[in-house]
Design a protein around this nucleic acid. Structure first.
Lengths: 139, 139
DNA sequence: GTAAGTGCAAATCGTTTGCAATTTC
DNA sequence: GAAATTGCAAACGATTTGCACTTAC
């Protein structure tokens, strides 16, 4: 999982400038353990440095996405949500009641996915699995 | 799988008026075997009756979605795509090269999904599984 | 005839962009 | 000092909505 200093190195390697804004946004992302949307990321960043505009947050997120240091999600509400890219792909359970998002991995499902597309002559390059759930009522 | 006459009956049952526009849009949906976006649905509908506005297409799709006769998808491009609701849930393989969408079902994956959320005390109310693929190169 | 449904154009929401001003290197 | 990056506000694309007009019942 990339951290702020990893991002700094990446910027350097790519000839990108390590601005105050990028540093702050990287740290905000590294500190988050939820899946904030852009407005929330802007709020958290602006709390550290009020000069950061939302346009820069959008631009920086797009940049980080291209560098593959963040992953963009769409959980059915309109706006995009972000998290630091994980080396292992993981999927999400969305609790429709509380809005809480739980991460999980399941090797067997991954294996089945590979098999399905391979049998059709394809190569799996990405996948998205989201389970929308509600708390189970006891009887 | 609902067809036009089923939709007519549903409108009747719910006290909704069966307008020319709804009739046309229902037929366009029933005739489609792809996953058209709103603009495309509007184009197909307007070809039948040019009086149909895009606002009505949006309103009708929202209505049909509430009635559970259509399913709305988001395949990673921006706009929403629609298809008639199927009684069996199915998932999608998206060929990133051609944009083609292939439907599939896999009982074993469904079973694993149920198990995952049950073990966490949840009930699965919906899920989304999308496999993004590219044609496999031979070696 | 009346309430539901429509078309139109304006509004909204999330996101992107042109440009002049500001930084980082 | 030059090129990259920023902030601002305007532009954008998909979708929604207010309102006067139309239509199904």
């Amino acid at each position: 999982m990339p951290d702020s200093s990893y991002i700094a190195k990446l910027c350097y390697d790519k000839g990108l400038r390590l601005t105050e804004q990028r540093r702050v946004i990287a740290k905000v992302l590294a500190d988050a353990n939820d899946h904030p949307d852009v407005e929330e990321l802007h709020a958290r960043s602006a709390a550290v440095d009020s000069r950061i505009s939302i346009a820069t947050v959008y631009r920086t997120l797009r940049l980080f996405e291209e560098l593959e240091v963040v992953t963009k999600h769409d959980f059915g509400d309109q706006r995009a949500r972000y998290e630091l890219a994980d080396s292992e792909h993981h999927d999400h359970i969305i609790d429709l009641k509380s809005g809480k998002v739980i991460e999980f991995e399941n090797e067997e499902i991954e294996r089945l996915q590979e098999k399905i597309v391979n049998d059709l002559g394809y190569e799996l390059v990405d996948h998205k699995l989201e389970l929308y759930v509600l708390p189970r009522k006891k009887k």
